Simulated assay, not measured.
Amino acid sequence: MPAPAAAPVDPRVPTVVVDGVDIVYRVNGTGSGRGSATAALNRILRRKETEKASGVRKVHAVKNVSFVAYKGEAIGLIGTNGSGKSTLLKAVAGLLPVENGRIFTDGQPSLLGVNAALMNDLTGERNVHLGGLAMGMSRAEIKERYQDIVDFSGINEKGDFITLPMRTYSSGMAARLRFSIAAAKNHDVLLIDEALATGDAKFQKRSEERIRELRKEAGTVFLVSHSNKSIRDTCERVIWLERGEMRLDGPTDEVIREYEKFSKR
C-alpha cells in the first residue's frame, strides 16, 4: 500500500505571527480614592472590583485578531477612524501590551509614524544622526548614508533647511525626514503609519519605490494609510479592520473593493 503523500511545505518565511490578539485601553474615571497610594495598591490587587468602583472604562481596541505575515510581503492595513490599525501596529512593534493572545516577530520591528518624536530644538542634521543611532545604525553607516537621506527627503530643495532646528520645519517636511531616516536602513519588519499621506506626489512616488526596494532587500512592510491609491500602489495584500475586528484579509484589489462598498453606505 503506497504511503500517503506528504503535505506540501510552504516555502514562505513567517516574519510576524499575530495569534488571537486582544488589546484593551483603560481610561481612568473619577471614582473615590483615585491618587492615593492605598487606592493604587487596591487597583493592583483587586483590579476588576476597583476598576468598576473607581469608574475605569475599558476600550476594546483590537478584538481577537490573527494573521501571519511573510518575508517579502507588503501588507496594507485599512479601516475607518478608530478601527484599531495604529494600535495593532504599536503592539507588533512591542510598544503596547496585549490583553489576550500572543505576537511573535522574527527580527526587530521598526515603527515609523508621522507623529514619531524628533527633537525639535536640534537641527535636522543632528536628528538624522540620532535617528540612525536609534535604529541601530553605526556612526560609519550614518555618515555613509547621510547625504542620501537628505537628498531623499527633499529638505534642502528650497534652502539649507537641514542645518536649521526641527521646530522651523512644516509638518510635511518633518514627516518626510522621518521617513527618509527610517528608509535608509533595511528592516526585518518595517511598520509605517500614514507616512505616505504627507509630501507632494513626487515624494510619495519615491517613498513607494523605496518600500518596494525594502521588500526585496529585507523583510516585511506594513502600511497604515487612508489613501487607497497608496495601498494599491504599494501592497499586494490588505488586512481590513473595523471596530477592532478583522473584516477581511486577502489580495489588495479584492479587499479594497469590499471596503469601498462599505464606506459608501
Rank of each mutant, 00 (worst) to 15 (best):
I181F: 06
F179D: 05
M173S: 07
M246N: 02
D253K: 06
E242Y: 03
Y259R: 00
I75V: 12
Y169V: 10
N228Q: 09
L196V: 05
Q204N: 10
R257S: 14
L191N: 07
L89D: 00
G131F: 04
V98Q: 02
T123I: 04
R178C: 15
E125S: 08
S138V: 04
E73S: 05
E236S: 05
A197Y: 04
M166V: 11
L89P: 01
K52V: 11
E245V: 01
D253Q: 04
R46A: 12
F222C: 00
Q147G: 04
K48I: 10
S54Y: 15
E157Q: 15
L177D: 08
I155V: 11
N156K: 06
F203V: 02
G84E: 00
D249K: 02
T15N: 10
H129N: 10
K58F: 07
K229R: 14
S138N: 10
I231C: 00
E209R: 13
Y25I: 00
V13L: 11
G172C: 03
G172Y: 03
T252P: 00
A197S: 14
I239W: 00
F179M: 07
F161P: 06
R232H: 00
V114E: 05
G31R: 13
G199S: 03
T234E: 00
E213M: 14
S227C: 03
G107P: 03
E209H: 15
P109Q: 04
K264C: 11
Q147R: 14
T220C: 15
T105Q: 04
V18D: 02
L248N: 09
G131V: 02
P11A: 05
P14A: 09
N156E: 10
F179K: 12
H129G: 09
F104P: 07
M135Q: 12
P251T: 05
N156H: 07
T198K: 09
V128R: 10
R126H: 09
V17P: 04
S207C: 05
A134W: 09
F152E: 05
A184T: 06
E49Y: 15
R176P: 01
T168R: 15
G136R: 10
R139H: 15
D200R: 02
A117T: 15
G82R: 03
F179G: 09
I44H: 14
I231A: 00
I231F: 00
P2C: 13
F104T: 12
E144Q: 11
G159S: 07
L89G: 03
L191H: 08
P97K: 01
R215S: 12
P14S: 07
K216I: 15
D151P: 06
L41D: 06
R176I: 03
G101S: 02
N120C: 14
K52T: 13
S207V: 01
A201V: 06
G250K: 01
T163I: 14
E125G: 07
V16N: 07
F152W: 05
L122D: 02
T50V: 12
G79Y: 02
S36I: 03
S263T: 13
K63R: 14
E242S: 02
M135C: 11
A175Y: 01
K71E: 14
A195G: 13
K202S: 11
I155S: 04
V98W: 01
N115Y: 11
L45K: 09
T50A: 12
V238K: 00
I211D: 15
V9E: 11
